[in-house]
Design a protein around this nucleic acid. Structure first.
Lengths: 204, 204
DNA sequence: CGAGTCACTGGAACTCGTTCTAGGCTAGCG
DNA sequence: CGCTAGCCTAGAACGAGTTCCAGTGACTCG
């Protein structure tokens, strides 16, 4: 609840860094098996070879752990996307293409996606900083995809925010079985039209 | 998990209807005190004068209970909004006005809002039907606000879906303290421009 | 070398959602 | 009236997240 020492931020010894990696790895592995419920703190501790208390020293709650797992995965995805940027011309299409690519990656690990997204939306104020990091990463991915020459305008940043909202919420409806893959695609394409809108009207 | 008798749907005796009301009332009251965490099943049962087992017969999980609470509140809001429709001219502005009105209502009960929205996004597949009902109610409110003369086009329905996504996700960021009220307002106004977009281009 | 400090371990303990059990009350039916 | 079926009550019991505690080991400073 209060601002304790952040084991993630400040420098760790090598052994500690290795512990942290093992924990995140175990978390991701359990999550990709059975989703949010399958990530049980005792199991994570056991599988990563640390005591339960230590696990809680590194990640003060299950939600913190899963949000950190998401940071990790997003990092990977960002690098992957950097290497193979979208092929479309128009910014809107580029963003839509990028998000659909990310979506397909999530489809390959639906349980992992479930665990991470559920944690993200269930996070309360005590996890805000970590969730914010995830949000910034997502923003960076979208801005990269737009392939702008100059810095984004305020309007464009607003559009990106809305795209992120749609992205998260659409993922949730898909994960809970209330929307099909096709529906998610439509939603993404629809919201991406906002980019055209903001690009097309510099000063109307 | 399976399709049992739904106490909500099929006819209940008067005593049963009263019990259900008492439970929902207790749930809302506890929620408005301390949010999601303050709604403890034992307390709800005690405060509404039913046994724990009975509570679970009416609402098979805490999430079910809170989603039902949300249905209840949305019903109210829908009626209130019907009585005082938005004053703006343009559909986009009308929707934005309506959502901001709803948002202000939620600001008056932030804890209750927290409990309901968290439940909604945390709901897994077993709650899909109930969540779907909430979603349909929200859609109805937005479509009402648009004040269309004819049936909405497929494009307009897509826009409404995206608006809903944005609405939910923006609420979450506000509730978890990561976005200000002003920011939520901007996001809503931004996404509502999609309505103009779909209205202005019937066949371009 | 000795003492103190701090992270880590193993495991008990606590909370709250959920399930289960035994028994009691009510309503309809023979 | 007495019986049976269901619903309800009280409360125990179970599972998983979280907290706590006593002990241990390693590292640092004197």
């Amino acid at each position: 609840m209060t601002a304790e020492v952040k084991p993630a931020a400040l420098q760790l010894t090598e052994r500690q860094e290795a512990r942290r990696r093992r924990i995140l790895h175990a978390s991701a592995r359990l999550a990709s098996r059975g989703g949010f419920d399958a990530v049980q703190m005792r199991e994570v501790a056991e599988n990563s070879g640390v005591a339960l208390g230590t696990l809680y020293r590194y990640f003060p709650s299950k939600v913190h752990l899963l949000v950190a797992t998401m940071q990790d995965q997003l990092q990977h995805m960002h690098e992957t996307l950097r290497k193979r940027p979208p092929t479309e011309e128009e910014p809107a299409a580029r963003v839509a293409q990028t998000l659909m690519r990310a979506f397909r990656a999530l489809q390959r690990e639906p349980h992992l996606a479930d665990a991470m997204v559920r944690a993200l939306t269930f996070a309360d104020r005590s996890v805000s900083p970590e969730v914010d990091t995830v949000s910034r990463l997502t923003t960076a991915i979208i801005l990269d995809a737009m392939g702008l020459d100059e810095a984004p305008t305020a309007e464009q940043l607003s559009a990106v925010r809305v795209i992120e909202h749609t992205w998260h919420s659409a993922l949730i409806t898909w994960l809970s079985g209330r929307a099909s893959i096709a529906q998610v695609k439509i939603d993404i394409e629809t919201v991406c039209r906002l980019i055209d809108l903001t690009a097309a009207t510099p000063a109307r």
